[in-house]
């Protein structure tokens, strides 16, 4: 099924998605990858606020290439989500509603997703030039010193993705070729 969905995302919208659905996302998403997740964990350990409130929000695991003059962003495809698995349950428990990346998630992440009614979406890995066309603006909001790994607030328009893990724990990767990977 093809669906138009929104970011930030309501609980109801997340609950209505099923593994295998094709979606187009419009709205605001935040980028964060390895280093930014490490910093967010440190911030929480120190009892500080996060750079954005995860409640209802969508994180895109992505570090862009530099933008040319006059363009909002460079190449902007997904990075491997499992590297963020260690940090993800703490964000899900604070209301993070959806994640966009590529590749499998571990069982702790899946459990935390089901517990909180969140979804995990995959964008096509290696299609960074194509996906950049769906990003209309980009602004660094935290950790500027991390360069490509800084947290960016993006406005996206009809950004294409596939629902891989739904809020009931259904996993498209398991369904299409079964079995656990070495990551589990």
């Amino acid at each position: 099924m093809e669906r138009e969905i929104h970011a930030p995302m309501s609980k109801e919208e997340a609950a209505s998605l099923r593994a295998g659905d094709s979606v187009y996302i419009t709205g605001t998403v935040y980028t964060a990858r390895d280093a930014a997740h490490g910093r967010m964990r440190e911030a929480l350990d120190r009892g500080e606020e996060l750079p954005f409130d995860p409640e209802g929000n969508v994180i895109y695991y992505m570090g862009p290439s530099p933008a040319r003059e006059g363009r909002p962003i460079g190449s902007a495809g997904p990075t491997t989500a499992s590297r963020m698995d260690k940090y993800t349950p703490m964000l899900l428990d604070r209301g993070l509603r959806a994640m966009i990346g590529k590749g499998r998630r571990n069982s702790q992440v899946k459990e935390a997703m089901v517990r909180n009614g969140a979804v995990y979406l995959a964008a096509v890995g290696g299609a960074g030039a194509l996906l950049s066309k769906c990003i209309v603006s980009s602004e660094v909001i935290a950790y500027d010193d991390l360069g490509t790994e800084a947290i960016r607030k993006l406005q996206v328009e009809r950004f294409p993705a596939i629902v891989v893990i739904d809020s009931l724990g259904g996993d498209l990767y398991d369904r299409v070729y079964g079995g656990a990977s070495a990551l589990e």
Binding site: M62, G63, P64, S65, R68, R71, G74, S75, A76, G77, T79, V124, G125, G126, A127, G128, A129, L130, S132, K133, T148
Partner: peptide
């Protein structure tokens, strides 16, 4: 994606 990379002068993938 390959076509856009070539014409828009943007890397094929952000991980260069």
């Amino acid at each position: 994606n390959l076509k856009i990379a070539g014409t828009d002068q943007i890397p094929i993938c952000q991980d260069t």
